[in-house]
């Protein structure tokens, strides 16, 4: 069911796909879809969660081998996310839009609340502080928030300007460097 839904959301579009079509493609009855999921929005949420499992399996393999400065490491983590999500850009954008597509009684979860990415960014900055690259008095949760906001809104480039992951990663790298100049120990001392 989830494979069928993912393919249809990607090729036909989320709004255009009906639960009936998902059932037909998966070779199950419409009723079976509804015994597993309350709504189409819930199917989409599950599809996205499953995709993230693949991404984090990949990241768990890669992150221990990341080298370089805090800026380099943060850039790599965000770049991997952009590269991953833009493999299926329409699907990802449908996910963002669906979170806001509010009706009375609906209870969808907004995008950008990605606790694992947040955790990774947090660990990376905290690790930088241990290595003396980040000022001791830096407000790490706040730095993480600021970076996450920039990360999330850079997707507008994919949505509005058909930007590829390289372009998004390049801008993100400059944004990280810009924030980093504020949390570097020398800047704090000055």
């Amino acid at each position: 069911m989830l494979d069928a839904a993912r393919d249809l959301f990607e090729t036909v579009g989320y709004e255009e796909t009906t639960v009936r079509e998902i059932a037909t493609r998966a070779g199950v009855a419409v009723g079976s879809v509804f015994t597993c999921f309350a709504s189409k929005a819930e199917v989409l949420s599950q599809v996205m969660l499953d995709r993230l499992e693949d991404l984090y399996a990949e990241l768990d393999r890669i992150t221990p081998h990341l080298r370089g400065t805090v800026v380099d490491r943060l850039s790599s983590i965000f770049a991997l996310h952009y590269a991953f999500e833009t493999r299926r850009t329409p699907l990802f954008l449908a996910h963002i839009a669906a979170a806001y597509n509010w009706r009375p009684g609906s209870d969808s979860v907004p995008y950008g609340r990605n606790p694992r990415l947040r955790g990774m960014i947090h660990d990376c900055v905290a690790d930088g502080r241990n290595r003396g690259e980040v000022a001791d008095d830096a407000d790490i949760p706040l730095i993480v928030d600021t970076l996450m906001a920039a990360y999330a809104w850079n997707y507008r480039l994919a949505a509005w300007e058909q930007a590829g992951p390289e372009q998004m990663s390049a801008i993100m790298e400059r944004q990280i460097a810009l924030v980093a100049r504020g949390f570097a120990p020398t800047a704090a001392a000055a």
Partner: peptide, 17 residues
């Protein structure tokens, strides 16, 4: 309160000093 903190973080690297 959140905005005040965000503005501070974003401008931190740009201060003259």
């Amino acid at each position: 309160a959140r905005s005040r903190d965000q503005i501070r973080v974003i401008l931190a690297g740009a201060r003259r000093g």
